[in-house]
């Protein structure tokens, strides 16, 4: 499948991944992250049950402490 991840096209072997699997694959390891799929926010408690498939636009933003 091909997805758009943070404005770059990414090809992956497989039909779909849960958000949790995708984050692990892409090595997004920061503890605090916000994920949007096709513009919609995915809550952290839904990372296992929301899936990313071909053509999806995924945006993952690390939130960094400091203010």
């Amino acid at each position: 499948m091909k997805i758009t991840l943070n404005n770059s096209e990414v090809s992956m072997a497989g039909e779909s991944f849960s958000v949790r699997e995708l984050l692990a694959l892409m090595k997004f390891t920061f503890p605090m992250i916000v994920v949007k799929i096709n513009g919609r926010l995915v809550r952290k408690e839904d990372y296992e049950r929301v899936f990313v498939g071909d053509g999806d636009n995924v945006e993952a933003i690390h939130l960094i402490s400091g203010g």
């Binding site: 920061f30 605090m32 992250i33 916000v34 809550r43 939130l63 960094i64 400091g66």
Partner: peptide, 25 residues
């Protein structure tokens, strides 16, 4: 950072038509 995520989620939930501007990094 956990508070930043909390408010982003709260605004999206309670105020889907409002803009939120976060600072990060």
């Amino acid at each position: 950072a956990d508070m930043k995520r909390m408010i982003i989620e709260a605004v999206v939930e309670h105020f889907p038509d409002k803009f939120i501007i976060a600072g990060s990094g």
